[in-house]
Design a protein around this nucleic acid. Structure first.
Lengths: 161, 161
DNA sequence: ATTGCACTGTTATAATATAACAATTCTTCG
DNA sequence: CGAAGAATTGTTATATTATAACAGTGCAAT
């Protein structure tokens, strides 16, 4: 069921997304000798509560509600940790964070972000990478890291109007 | 002399960049019935002082030095105005602004940003656009606006090391 | 001339992110 | 075990980026 896994399909089984993300995270941490502490795990869960990018300051009250310390450094540290492991990504055009769907396969990322429902989904850019690098190379530029954020309308929102 | 026009070539005649930008801006404003007031023109000049994206708060003291009012709203208003006309772009991964090299040809933008010298240059994505749209369309997504920011090393910086 | 509108000035504050150092907990190795 | 060292978390303060809200000013067109 490929379509059922699409973030833009609001009927998808989101529990799967969350549990997959959590087990990937645990495996990754183990293999890298890193600790997925309670705070880090909770922040990861919170980021994964939906496919909408969330700001750090939206997470803070939720951390507090869960009985955790809640000051900006706490959440930013956890976010930094998760980012470094590739478990979440930062959407810089929104100052927000979103769970990574492929933490096991390090990959250049590109996001489609619906301006109506705010849902964000990763775009498979495997076919685009070569072209990107070739185009950049024409001006002597060597790409090391990319931030691709595409704003538009998802299927559901387009059909709703 | 195409190469001489490359932002990554520090030997290029930057006065040309600035004067081109200014005359394009004037023409564009005229044709759109907009006013390029002294503040707006100065902010455009300041953004164009180099090919390195500049933050709003880096412009403020320079505005002050030029004898202008200098409070955040002043510079942000000018930046917003220039952005709406497509005369400058915002690099969201850096919270910074850079002059647009093609204000007369509205275009989807992509930037290459050198992590060493901080110079940013637009990448020609004409060949990539179709692929982008096709890839997104596979998931039913309709791209309206894009932010592509590629971090890496430019020729000069690569050769310097 | 005067009315309306765009632009600018000014003050305050919101939103996002980090610095710096103290306290705690975890680990590991003697 | 128990102490030393390292990683993690707590806490306070502050830096950085951006906007709200309203008052004043000047241009523009009837």
């Amino acid at each position: 069921m490929l379509e059922a896994n699409n973030a833009f399909n609001s009927a998808h089984n989101h529990q799967h997304c969350v549990s997959d993300a959590l087990s990937s995270a645990k495996a990754l941490c183990r293999s890298q000798g890193q600790r997925l502490t309670p705070i880090r795990e909770l922040v990861l869960r919170l980021v994964w509560q939906s496919h909408k990018p969330l700001g750090a300051y939206e997470l803070l009250p939720q951390l507090a509600q869960a009985g955790f310390n809640s000051a900006p450094p706490t959440v930013y540290r956890a976010l930094d940790f998760l980012q470094e492991l590739g478990l979440i990504h930062r959407i810089s055009s929104m100052n927000a964070f979103i769970g990574c769907t492929q933490p096991n396969h390090p990959h250049p990322t590109a996001f489609m972000i619906c301006r109506a429902c705010r849902t964000a989904a990763e775009l498979d850019t495997s076919e685009l990478e070569t072209l990107f690098h070739l185009s950049a190379a024409k001006q002597g530029f060597d790409i090391e890291q990319q931030s691709v954020e595409l704003l538009g309308l998802c299927v559901q929102c387009r059909e709703t109007r």
